[in-house]
Computed example of a mutant assay.
Amino acid sequence: MAMPKIKTHSGAKKRFKITATGKVAYKKVNRGHLLRKKNQKRIRALKQKGYLDEAFARKIKQLMPYSN
């Protein structure tokens, strides 16, 4: 009898993406509203993707078993 499939964590699925090289990418916070008071340099920096360090990435990859 085969082992049952593991469910993907739905919260992690919505927030993180595993890249082709195996890094875990996420969208940075503080881009939703109140942008007038933030300077352009800060807004541009928030536009870029963030990448988790290896310790957190291992935990997220456990929550998303079939996305590798």
Results as ranks from 00 to 15, higher is better:
Met1Asn: 06
Ala2Trp: 02
Ala2Met: 07
Met3Ile: 10
Met3Ser: 08
Pro4Ala: 07
Pro4Ser: 09
Lys5Pro: 09
Lys5Asp: 08
Ile6Val: 11
Lys7His: 05
Lys7Asn: 10
Lys7Thr: 03
Thr8Glu: 12
His9Val: 01
His9Pro: 03
Ser10Trp: 10
Gly11Ser: 04
Gly11Val: 02
Ala12Asp: 01
Ala12Asn: 03
Ala12Pro: 03
Lys13Asn: 14
Lys14Cys: 05
Lys14Pro: 04
Lys14Ile: 07
Arg15Tyr: 06
Arg15Asn: 15
Arg15Pro: 03
Phe16His: 01
Phe16Lys: 00
Ile18Val: 10
Thr19Glu: 08
Ala20Pro: 09
Thr21Met: 03
Gly22Ala: 00
Gly22Ser: 01
Lys23Cys: 03
Lys23Phe: 07
Lys23Met: 02
Lys23Tyr: 13
Tyr26Asp: 00
Tyr26Ile: 00
Lys27Val: 13
Lys27Arg: 12
Lys28Ala: 00
Lys28Arg: 05
Val29His: 10
Val29Glu: 12
Val29Thr: 09
Asn30Glu: 05
Asn30Val: 04
Asn30Asp: 11
Arg31Asn: 14
Arg31Glu: 11
Arg31Pro: 02
Arg31Ala: 07
Gly32Leu: 06
Gly32Phe: 08
Gly32Gln: 07
His33Gly: 07
Leu34Cys: 12
Leu34His: 13
Leu34Val: 08
Leu34Lys: 13
Leu34Asp: 15
Leu35Ile: 08
Leu35Lys: 10
Leu35Arg: 09
Arg36Leu: 14
Arg36Val: 06
Arg36Phe: 09
Lys37Leu: 12
Lys37Phe: 15
Lys37Val: 15
Lys37Ser: 13
Asn39Ser: 09
Gln40Thr: 14
Gln40Ser: 10
Lys41Val: 11
Arg42Asn: 13
Arg42Thr: 15
Ile43Asp: 00
Ile43Lys: 06
Arg44Glu: 13
Arg44Asp: 15
Ala45Cys: 04
Leu46Lys: 08
Lys47His: 10
Lys47Asn: 11
Gln48Asp: 09
Gln48Arg: 12
Gln48Glu: 13
Lys49Asn: 13
Lys49Tyr: 07
Gly50Lys: 01
Gly50Arg: 00
Gly50Met: 01
Tyr51Pro: 01
Asp53Arg: 13
Asp53Thr: 09
Asp53Phe: 06
Asp53Ser: 12
Glu54Cys: 07
Ala55Asp: 14
Ala55Lys: 14
Ala55Cys: 06
Phe56Thr: 14
Arg58Asn: 08
Ile60Gln: 04
Ile60Met: 06
Lys61Met: 03
Lys61Phe: 02
Lys61Ala: 02
Gln62Arg: 14
Leu63Ala: 10
Met64Pro: 06
Met64Gly: 03
Met64Tyr: 05
Met64Val: 03
Pro65Asn: 02
Pro65Gly: 04
Ser67Tyr: 09
Asn68His: 11
Asn68Thr: 07
